[in-house]
Amino acid sequence: MIRPILALSALTILAACSSAGTSPVVAVIKGVILPSKAEDIPVKNAGATLTREKIEKFGLSLIRGRIEGEDISNLLTGTAVNDQYVTYISSFRQNITMLGTLVTGTRGMGGDLLAVRNDLSDPVAYATPTANWPATLTRDYRFPGIGPAGNTISVTCNLTRAPDTTVTIVEVTYDVTPFTEVCSGDGAEFTNTYLVQPDTGQIWQSLQWIGDKVGYVNIDVLEPYTTE
C-alpha cells in the first residue's frame, strides 16, 4: 500500500500555495504533493473514536505515538520513504522516522534524534522471527551537537524475552512475545521494550528511547508500512 507522499504537513503547504489557474508550474507542484485532503485521515486526535474500520478505510501506513509520561497520543501517517526509512508525520508536523520499527529520527518533539546506525542483524529494524533474535546488538544514536556529526551515543544492548502474552491495539488482538532491551554506553542507560509477533517478527507495540531530553516514545503500529 505504497502511497509515498501523503501527510497533513504536505497539505498544509499546499494550502499555503496560490493556485494560478492552469499554470503548468503550479500543476507540477501539485503533482509532487499528493492530492489528499485532511478529511482522508481517519481521525486527527488519537483520543477520538479511532476504530479498526477507519484505519482499514484509510488504507495507509499509520502509527500512534505518545511521549512517555504524557497523556496525549498523536496519529502519524507514513509520508515519505527514503531507501527503507519511512517518515511518519502528525497533524502538528511532528516527525518520526523509522527503519522497520526502530525509531531512527524525531523532529518537533522537544529534542531531536537526528539518526541511528544499527546492526544488519537488528531485529527491530528488520522484522525477524523471534526465534532468531540475537542476544546483543549495537547502535549509534546521533543528536544535535557541534559539527556535522553532532553528538553520538554508542550503546550495546542486551535483549531478553518474557513469556508470551497478548496485546490489543484498536480492536485487534495479537499474540506477542515481550522483549526487553537494556542498552548502555557513552554515559547513557535506557531500556526499550517490544511486543513482537513471534512468527513474523512484526513489532506491534514498543517503548523506545529517543534521547535524554525527551526520554521515551511509545509506538503502536496501527497499519504497518509494506512495499506491496
Binding site: I5, A7, S9, A10, I13, T79, A80, T87, I89, F92, R93, Q94, N95, R107, G108, M109, G110, G111, D112, P144, K213
Partner: peptide, 9 residues
C-alpha cells in the same frame, strides 16, 4: 529546544 514544527519530508 526543538519544539518547533518538524520539516517537510
Amino acid at each position: 529546544p526543538d519544539l518547533g514544527i518538524g520539516p517537510v519530508p
